[in-house]
């Protein structure tokens, strides 16, 4: 009887050791993969957006021999807003400006200059290239645009300052009213 009990006891101990050993695997789990993809983003606009027209007037000189007077007849401040998310292998983007459609009257230069960034955005903003003479060819006004957003609306991004210069008086002639569209593009570098 005692031998049988001892054997039974040993068997149960063995079974329990197995059960206890298996306990490490009793509490099982599961896994869930979570994936998301941020797509490349390259968006740009000019604010305030309701009326982005800049007017200049070139009037005759006040006095004989003096240069014509150039006036910016409205003080609308234009701001360049953008959002940019680059794929890993791309270093940065540039923002270019060019005159679309009709060209400038002869003898006149139209310049644009982007300010340093200001606003409520975050990230790596573009660096202004200074005063740039516009033409129908693309001209870079900002370089080094990284992953960033400038904030939306007036006061966010880069303000744009326009100026007109008489480049060559010999080519100036009365052209009446002339209008141009300036096209801005954010582009991979």
């Amino acid at each position: 009887m005692g031998t049988i009990l001892k054997r039974l006891l040993l068997l149960l101990i063995g079974v329990n050791v197995f059960a206890t050993g298996a306990k490490a695997q009793l509490n099982t789990g599961g896994e869930l993969e979570v994936n998301f993809l941020i797509p490349p983003i390259a968006l740009l606009d000019i604010e305030p957006g309701i009326n982005n027209t800049i007017y200049f007037s070139v009037s005759s000189a006040i006095e004989s021999g003096a240069s014509p007077q150039i006036e910016n007849t409205n003080n609308e401040s234009l701001w360049l807003n953008y959002s940019s998310a680059l794929e890993g292998n791309l270093g940065s983007r540039i923002i270019i400006a060019q005159i679309a459609g009709e060209n400038l009257p002869e003898g006149i230069t139209l310049n644009v200059e982007a300010s340093q960034y200001s606003g409520v955005g975050d990230g790596q903003f573009g660096q202004p290239t200074g005063k740039v003479a516009l033409s129908t060819q693309p001209r870079t006004i900002l370089t080094g645009v990284g992953n960033c957003f400038t904030g939306d609306g007036v006061g966010n991004g880069h303000s744009l300052t326009f100026s007109i210069e008489v480049e060559d008086y010999s080519k100036i002639s009365s052209v009446g009213e002339s209008s141009f569209t300036i096209l801005y593009t954010i582009s991979d570098n």
């Binding site: 099982t28 599961g30 979570v34």
Partner: peptide, 24 residues
């Protein structure tokens, strides 16, 4: 729910693995 992502992170894929474990 996912939050805290931004264009400042750049474009690209992000992966995570949630591990669930049941205990007695």
């Amino acid at each position: 729910k996912l939050s805290g992502f931004s264009v400042t992170m750049g474009a690209g894929s992000h992966n995570s693995r949630i591990v669930f474990t049941v205990y007695e």
